[in-house]
C-alpha cells in the first residue's frame, strides 16, 4: 500500500493529483522520508531545465496589464476573468493593450508627426494625474468624472472621434470613440497613443466595425507621473507595433 503511494510522487511533482488524491499524497509525503528525498532529487534534476527556453519577447503591454490586474480588485477578492490578457488578434472594439514604457523610442516619429501637418503643442503640460501611489491620492474626484475631452478629426478622411480622460473610482481611463474610420485589412489595426514630450505610450488598439466605428477604453496605469501632451491615433500594419510605424490619422492636444 505504501509503495503504491510512493508511486504517485512523479504525478504529484507534475501537479497531476487533484482533490483527495493530492491531499492523501501530501499527508503521505509528510510521513515518508524516501518520498521527501526523492522529491528534492526531482527538483534538483530539473532545476536548470527552464533555462532551455528560448528567449521570447513578452507581448506589448504585458507588464502594465499584469501589474494592473494583480494590484487591483484586491479587497473584494472577486474573480478577475475580465482582466485576463486579451488576445490582441481578436477584433474587439475594446481591445486594451499597454506597452512597457522603458523602451526608448527614437525621435523620428514625432518629427514625422509634425511634418504631417498636425499641430501639436508639445510644451503644454496638461497635468492629469499621479498614478496609483498608494500613499498619495493626488486626485479625489467623484466617480466617473470626465477630466478632459478633446475632439479628433482627420484632415484627409471623414474620420472623427472623441477622446476623454475619465477618472473612475480608482484609475484614470482614456476613452476613445471614433466614427467613419477607414476599414482595415488583414492584420492592420488602429493604435491609440498617449504622447508625452517625445515619448509615445501605447494606449489601446482597435479595429473599426463595418460602419467604421471603433472604441477603446484604456486604463492609464503607467507607473510614475505623466503630463500628457497629446493623443494620437495611427494606422498600423500589425497590432504589435512597439512604436508608431504607420501613419497618423488623427491627433489632438490634450
Amino acid at each position: 500500500m505504501e509503495q503504491k503511494k510512493c508511486d504517485n510522487l512523479l504525478d504529484y511533482f507534475n501537479d497531476k493529483l487533484v482533490g483527495r488524491e493530492k491531499e492523501e499524497f501530501e499527508a503521505h509525503l509528510n510521513q515518508c522520508p524516501e518520498c521527501q528525498e526523492e522529491l528534492a532529487e526531482w527538483q534538483e534534476l530539473t532545476a536548470d531545465l527552464p533555462y532551455l527556453s528560448e528567449e521570447v519577447e513578452p507581448p506589448l503591454g504585458m507588464k502594465e496589464r499584469i501589474l494592473f490586474n494583480v494590484t487591483s480588485d484586491k479587497k473584494d477578492g472577486t474573480a478577475v476573468d475580465h482582466d485576463k490578457p486579451i488576445n490582441q488578434k481578436n477584433k474587439s472594439a475594446e481591445t486594451v493593450s499597454v506597452s512597457p514604457i522603458r523602451r526608448k523610442r527614437p525621435r523620428t516619429w514625432i518629427t514625422g508627426l509634425l511634418a504631417a501637418g498636425l499641430l501639436l503643442s508639445l510644451g503644454t503640460n496638461a497635468y492629469l494625474f499621479i498614478e496609483n501611489d498608494k500613499n498619495e491620492q493626488a486626485i479625489e474626484e467623484p466617480i466617473n468624472k470626465t477630466f478632459k475631452t478633446v475632439q479628433l478629426a482627420s484632415e484627409e478622411t471623414k474620420s472623427t472621434g472623441v477622446a476623454s480622460m475619465v477618472q473612475d473610482d480608482q484609475t484614470m481611463k482614456l476613452v476613445v470613440h471614433t466614427n467613419n474610420m477607414t476599414q482595415v485589412q488583414g492584420t492592420e489595426t488602429y493604435q491609440v497613443w498617449l504622447i508625452e514630450g517625445d515619448k509615445k505610450f501605447r494606449a489601446g488598439t482597435f479595429t473599426p466595425d463595418e460602419n467604421g466605428n471603433g472604441a477603446v477604453v484604456f486604463p492609464v496605469t503607467f507607473p510614475g507621473e505623466h503630463n500628457w501632451d497629446a493623443v494620437a491615433i495611427s494606422h498600423e500594419p500589425t497590432p504589435d507595433s512597439k512604436q508608431p510605424k504607420g501613419t497618423i490619422v488623427m491627433a489632438s492636444e490634450l
Partner: peptide, 20 residues
C-alpha cells in the same frame, strides 16, 4: 518577466496563455 514568460511560452506554446 522575460524568463518566466519565455519558460511559460515553451510550455504552453501560445503567447496569451503564457501571459496568463
Amino acid at each position: 518577466e522575460k524568463l518566466l514568460f519565455s519558460f511559460s511560452y515553451k510550455m504552453v506554446k501560445q503567447k496569451e496563455m503564457a501571459e496568463e
